[in-house]
């Protein structure tokens, strides 16, 4: 579903991603872990071209998204993204946040979009907040709305960029719960996170990144219980 070949990304002289190769299958939940500055967020943001790519290729369902002929807006409509800072639109109600893109991008009619938005809000447990503005929500609620907003586009892939890192500890659970549910339903997910418990429980595969490379990858219990690489061991000894 996603194939990454020799991906490189530099910011000026700073090479953040050096040579990334990965493939992610349909319905797979891949968790990306690693120390800060390892390039994991940049890697994720390259998958929907929020960062321009310096070298290499990213294929989404066989389409090379870096090719000049590719309509990136079309790809992005099928790849949902959830951000660390939520990035809800503060001037729009929760419902409008969710309905905007289906209406403007997918040209779905207002009534259907509303029906779908309410259904998604029910799913993340926030139906009663439909007419609230984002400012009045807690962090956990905001992130659940952000997930619903991404899902409203009916994406085939969901990218999560440290979705719980900006949350108060007691709100982490409610967001992870929604993500777990999503994984159970068979969504293809790439999750950058520091939540090792989530990685172990929900991940089908864990990638450990350091210094712009994927240093090690394995099924969670192997990677956590029996890490092969020195750097993986050093990292895990600090966070577990």
């Amino acid at each position: 579903m996603i194939k990454v070949e020799k991906l490189k990304k530099s910011f000026g002289a700073n090479e953040v991603l050096k040579d990334i190769n990965a493939s992610i299958k349909q319905q797979e939940v891949v968790v990306v872990i690693g120390p800060s500055g390892s390039g994991k967020s940049t890697f994720l943001r390259c998958l929907n071209l929020l960062e321009s790519i310096t070298g290499g290729h990213v294929f989404i369902e066989g389409i090379d998204i870096t090719a000049k002929t590719t309509d990136i807006n079309k790809i992005r409509a099928e790849v949902g993204m959830v951000f660390q800072q939520f990035n809800l639109f503060p001037h729009k109600t929760v419902l409008d946040n969710i309905m905007l893109s289906p209406i403007k991008v997918k040209k779905i009619d207002h009534g259907k979009a509303k029906e779908k938005a309410l259904e998604l809000l029910r799913k993340v447990g926030l139906e009663e907040k439909a007419d609230a503005f984002p400012d009045s929500l807690s962090g956990g609620q905001k992130q659940r709305v952000a997930i619903a907003r991404a899902l409203a586009m009916e994406p085939k892939i969901m990218l999560f960029d440290e979705p719980t890192s900006a949350l108060d500890p007691e709100m982490v659970g409610e967001v992870l719960e929604v993500m777990k549910q999503l994984a159970k339903e068979g969504m293809t997910m790439v999750v950058v996170t520091h939540e090792m418990g989530f990685a172990r429980e929900v991940g089908d595969r864990v990638l450990f990144m350091d210094g712009g490379y994927i240093v090690e990858e394995n099924v969670p219990h192997e990677l956590f219980d029996n890490p092969q690489h020195e750097r993986t061991k050093a990292f895990l000894s600090k966070v577990l």
Partner: peptide, 15 residues
Amino acid sequence: IDRGQMEAARSLGMN
């Protein structure tokens, strides 16, 4: 306006 607003909009497929 925070950069994240543009990123969120673009990630939802808006041009």
